[in-house]
């Protein structure tokens, strides 16, 4: 029977639970060096130890996928994710679990059944490592999404004129972010002119063109007028060869030209405006 391989180590851990927990917390706290509060740590370890001892007592055996370990697994997922988000290394995270072995040895002793229990803890540590890695990937994906946001700044160039300088490649995910950002900025600033500058885009293919056109149509529906600027010679040639038509959308070679056009469209006499601003 599975429980036999653990001898009476589980019962003895239960009997010594408080001092065992105290020792475990002590070892872990040392490695965390105050990056977590004592109360938080205490709760985490207490719940985990309790769930582990219950699983072992109800015949969980050495297979962590077995039903009795469900609670233990859930707690480990939470612990590993928290550590990943708090920026702990995977090693620090796993070491915290392995430290339970030392705590048991120090308080209960390494007697019959300890070897089997030790194997279970090894498995728990590996599981922690796996979950940590996955959680870390999620953190990185989130950061990439945030970067995506940051890389599409919409700037207010003039009263009623916003500009969107596009850089790099405009794939579907980014095009969506760009469009939303532009439309939102049009609303927030009450602007009626948007300049989409593609100087930083290395190639315009049909997908990029389609995203641009959709964005411009959406902006028009909101009553804003769009100008595309920064079409470099090599890009102009590929656009023509592809047969892409920008229809009646105004295009300008440079951002400055586009700004002039937007300002003149809004009916401002540029000279007077500059003079007013002392330029």
């Amino acid at each position: 029977m599975a429980a036999e391989i653990f001898g009476n180590v589980v019962e003895r851990c239960r009997a010594e639970e408080e001092s065992l927990l105290g020792r475990w917390r002590e070892i872990v706290a040392e490695s965390l060096r105050g990056r977590m509060t004592g109360a938080e740590l205490d709760k985490e370890l207490r719940d985990l130890l309790d769930a582990l001892l219950s699983a072992l007592a109800t015949g969980g055996g050495t297979d962590l996928n077995a039903e009795p370990y469900a609670e233990v697994r859930a707690l480990l997922v939470e612990l590993s994710r928290n550590r990943a988000h708090q920026g702990f290394s995977p090693r620090e995270t796993a070491v915290g679990v392995y430290a339970l072995k030392r705590a048991i040895r120090d308080t209960v002793g390494a007697e019959a059944g300890f070897a089997a229990l030790s194997d279970v803890i090894d498995e728990l540590g590996l599981l922690t490592f796996e979950i940590y890695t996955k959680a870390r990937e999620e953190v990185i994906t989130n950061q990439a999404e945030q970067l995506l946001e940051l890389a599409t700044p919409v700037v207010k160039l003039w009263h009623g004129v916003v500009a969107l300088p596009l850089v790099g490649t405009l794939d579907s995910a980014r095009a969506q972010v760009v469009m939303e950002k532009l439309l939102q900025t049009l609303v927030d600033t009450g602007s009626e002119h948007a300049i989409i500058d593609i100087t930083g885009v290395s190639a315009v293919d049909t997908q990029v063109a389609q995203h641009l056109l959709k964005t411009i149509v959406a902006a028009r529906l909101m009553g804003a007028d769009c100008i595309i600027s920064g079409i470099r010679p090599q890009i102009a040639q590929t656009i023509v060869a592809l047969g892409i038509e920008f229809g009646d959308i105004a295009t300008k070679a440079t951002l400055a030209d586009a700004l002039m056009l937007a300002i003149s469209r809004s009916g401002v006499d540029f000279g007077t405006e500059m003079a007013k601003r002392g330029l």
Binding site: S202, A203, V204, D205, T206, Q207, P233, Q234, I235, Q237, T238, A241, L242
Partner: peptide, 17 residues
Amino acid sequence: SLVDQTKLVTAASELAR
């Protein structure tokens, strides 16, 4: 040339997609 690079890259982008 830069123009030919851009043309080839754009064609490749279409065909890859």
